[in-house]
Design a protein around this nucleic acid. Structure first.
Lengths: 264, 264
DNA sequence: CGTGCTGTTGAGGACGATCAATGACGGTGG
DNA sequence: CCACCGTCATTGATCGTCCTCAACAGCACG
């Protein structure tokens, strides 16, 4: 599969970067031309370290994650990747060896591969492209910060709810508007910093609240409003622009009246 | 204080960016020339949102943090800032409004102020400068990821130890080699996602282990080796280059022999 | 010499981890 | 077609970490 990508697949990347300001058609063409190879992966396969790491990947279809393995076998998932996301790009900017970080396919995935030297050239010829991709990386950082709040300060129920909201919102941005979150409880546990057992109990609670369906293995959100209010979800950190204003500030003001002023 | 900065203060920024690859003197001069104003702040003052946010800050002296306030008054500190760090720069790249994020001085600080339009121009004339600053932001993301592991998967003792290691290492990079961490228990608690009370108990444990001194209010590390081994600290995520190889991989292999292979 | 802010201590309880076992399901090969 | 296996979901019981509340002590500041 060498040669030019067919439009529909490179399209997801272009579409994504357009939402972050890549408006000139010329830049978009340059971007689309960067994907020269593609590859298919099954669940559990590593994405990064394909060759001698002189390239990185763009997720085209499927779900993946960036994670780190700790001594003892524990895994911390930093973030999930959806079509249009870059996998392993941070190594292009900051190349030194990075502990035990890796990216892994969580479902059947297809990825596009971009070589460093190709993007080197693209950045020289299309400075705007570089800036927009910088934005992509900053958006990822923004997501990381929110996840930090999640792990640091939210109890399990809200934490899981927040995670689910984020996945729905991010999939909606790229045009996937199912209410199904294509993950399993194990992945969620590793992202939420909770044990699988506890995730399972939280799920039962969410089902009892009518937020999740109880169809066996698929995670389906039945009541998005409720979910957002549990999570106190404010999707602004996803920088989705006007596309998705309805993801903003779903606040249940019932119980916090006087204490808002406490921190002056 | 309009006009050119005096060298020693802009110097900290140049020095910092040199460790990330800003080697051409011409670029360095351009960088130093960006700081046109400076300002002093006392503990607790906000750094970002100085004017109408058409600028960002470089921390020159003191300690600061980037954080978010949650409903209920809780605070999550994302990261601490030391001299040479950029505060609020992410808004330059990704300008949309960001929830309740802010940066705050944690001690007496002085900051340099850089206007967007000045750095716009600098990036055009010195593309390399832009790339190096991109690296700075990616380094921050790397720190965020490690903090995520910390909150998600490490128990309190290791978590606090890890946080302390990081602060020591980061201060060492910029030439501060005291064993004093210039923070208080409250700040540490908000960064570690623990309650102040629990932080205090962890501190007592660390003192009992001889790792921390028990001089009243200042946090002084007496046994860095021990601290690193408690935290299983591997400073590679800080990308400090060869400067600080001794921050790498301090592992106490005494108790995990057979189970390392468990996750194949 | 009060008044804050920070650090310290104690008691009690909640949240979430761990361990261990069982179920449900899909795929595979006989 | 069925037996087997691996993965993922579920359940119960127990335990420990960490939180909350509440009070007090020390120090720095005006």
């Amino acid at each position: 599969m060498v040669g030019m990508m067919k439009p529909p697949e490179a399209g997801i990347l272009v579409r994504r970067l357009r939402t972050l300001g890549l408006d000139r058609e010329e830049d978009q063409r340059a971007l689309a031309g960067l994907i020269r190879h593609k590859r298919r992966l099954g669940r559990g396969q590593e994405i990064v370290d394909l060759d001698t790491a002189q390239n990185f990947a763009v997720l085209l279809t499927g779900v993946a994650c960036l994670y780190k393995r700790l001594r003892g076998g524990n895994r911390q998932i930093y973030t999930f990747h959806y079509p249009g996301d870059l996998c392993g790009f941070h190594r292009y900017v900051l190349p030194e060896a990075e502990g035990e970080e890796a990216a892994m396919a969580l479902s059947e995935c297809s990825i596009g591969i971009i070589r460093y030297r190709d993007i080197d050239r693209a950045f020289e010829q299309h400075p705007k492209l570089g800036f927009v991709i910088w934005r992509v990386t900053m958006l990822e950082a923004s997501i990381l910060r929110e996840r930090l709040v999640n792990l640091g300060r939210r109890p399990a129920l809200e934490r899981v709810a927040h995670l689910l909201c984020e996945q729905l919102a991010r999939r909606e941005v790229i045009g996937v508007s199912t209410s199904i979150v294509p993950l399993n409880q194990i992945d969620l546990a590793d992202a939420a910093g909770l044990s699988v057992v506890h995730i399972n109990r939280i799920f039962q609670e969410l089902r009892k609240l009518g937020v999740l369906s109880d169809k066996g293995r698929t995670i389906e959100v039945l009541d998005k409003e409720r979910l957002m209010s549990i999570a106190e979800f404010d999707g602004r950190y996803l920088h989705m622009g006007d596309a998705l204003r309805h993801w903003e500030v779903a606040i249940d003001n019932s119980s916090d009246e006087g204490n808002v002023e406490d921190f002056t």
